[in-house]
């Protein structure tokens, strides 16, 4: 294989990865990292470095639309970013310290959990009852959003801000360690933990993902783990794929196809896990 072929394969594969990621609402990282490591035999740290810069590109694109629709709770995002960026620094630091095979193991486990989470029923736990907690009131985290389906402004109160911070630290750490956006952890931390409406949680998570990714991307860059031959085509490919995905059909709703993808993701996560457990080949 020539270097040109390698770059073009990375690019084409990342378009597919970004496309599937945006259909499933998972982001490209979970799809592209197994492709790079299992199929193209790329060192997992290079794969993670390439994925983390791609996430910045995709999240910045989507964030603009959400902010404009006033779905994003900017104050919640700013507060929680303290935790996600600290977590991302921790994760990025750890990724440079532990052996590559353990990154495969953790990736396999997190990917399997993410796949199962896709089956979660998205129920709305938000409420406007009660006083709101002292922290949430002090930081003025309570808010409201315009629900197009209901046709009215929906107010909500935020609870358990400190639990949210703790969960966000973990989400940031996974993001920095594995090069994924970890929206799959951020959204439940907000809607189940802090009782934000599901739409606000999704938009706010998307807003934070880019900033979180920048924290560990800086670390990977300075360490020399961002390989231009891989990160260049992967970042461009994932963005193109995600844009096509968003334009073609938005979020995939068909239950059967979702189940098929969940099964495929579980099989791939098992392969990642096995590769890690078998050790260096």
């Amino acid at each position: 294989m020539t270097a040109l072929e390698f770059v073009l394969i990375c690019f084409a594969g990342s378009i597919v990865g970004g496309f599937i990621g945006s259909l499933l609402g998972l982001g490209g990282g979970l799809v592209v990292i197994p492709m790079l490591t299992l199929a193209l035999k790329v060192d997992i740290r290079y794969a993670i470095g390439a994925s983390i810069v791609s996430i910045i590109a995709t999240s910045s694109g989507a964030a603009a639309a959400y902010v404009r629709e006033r779905m994003t709770n900017l104050r919640v995002a700013m507060v929680l970013e303290v935790a996600t960026t600290l977590g991302a620094l921790t994760g990025g630091y750890l990724a440079g310290r532990i052996a590559g095979r353990w990154l495969f193991v953790v990736f396999g486990v997190v990917m399997a959990c993410s796949a199962v989470m896709m089956l979660r029923k998205r129920r709305n736990a938000a409420s406007d009852e009660g006083e709101g907690t002292p922290w949430a009131n002090y930081l003025r985290l309570n808010g409201s959003y315009y629900d197009a389906a209901l046709g009215k402004e929906v107010p909500y109160r935020v609870i358990r801000a400190r639990l949210g911070l703790a969960l966000m630290y973990v989400a940031g750490m996974m993001s920095g360690l594995l090069g994924i956006g970890s929206g799959v952890l951020k959204v439940p931390a907000m809607d189940l933990g802090m009782r934000l409406p599901i739409k606000v949680s999704t938009a706010t998570s998307n807003f934070m993902i880019g900033v979180t990714a920048a924290a560990s991307a800086g670390l990977y860059f300075a360490r020399g783990d961002i390989n231009p031959f891989i990160a260049g085509p992967v970042a461009a490919g994932i963005l193109v794929g995600a844009m096509i995905g968003a334009r073609v059909m938005g979020r995939l709703q068909n239950a059967l196809i979702r189940y098929v993808f969940v099964v495929v993701l579980l099989i791939v996560s098992a392969q990642m896990l096995l590769k890690g457990l078998k050790g260096p080949s």
């Binding site: 700013m78 507060v79 970013e81 990025g92 924290a215 800086g218």
Partner: peptide
């Protein structure tokens, strides 16, 4: 003031990432 401080903290963490990566 509160949110200036919070956002400044995030910025410092982001800039620290480059420093920590260099030190390794």
């Amino acid at each position: 003031r509160v949110y200036t401080f919070i956002t400044l903290t995030v910025l410092i963490i982001l800039l620290m990432s480059f420093v920590i990566g260099r030190l390794e």
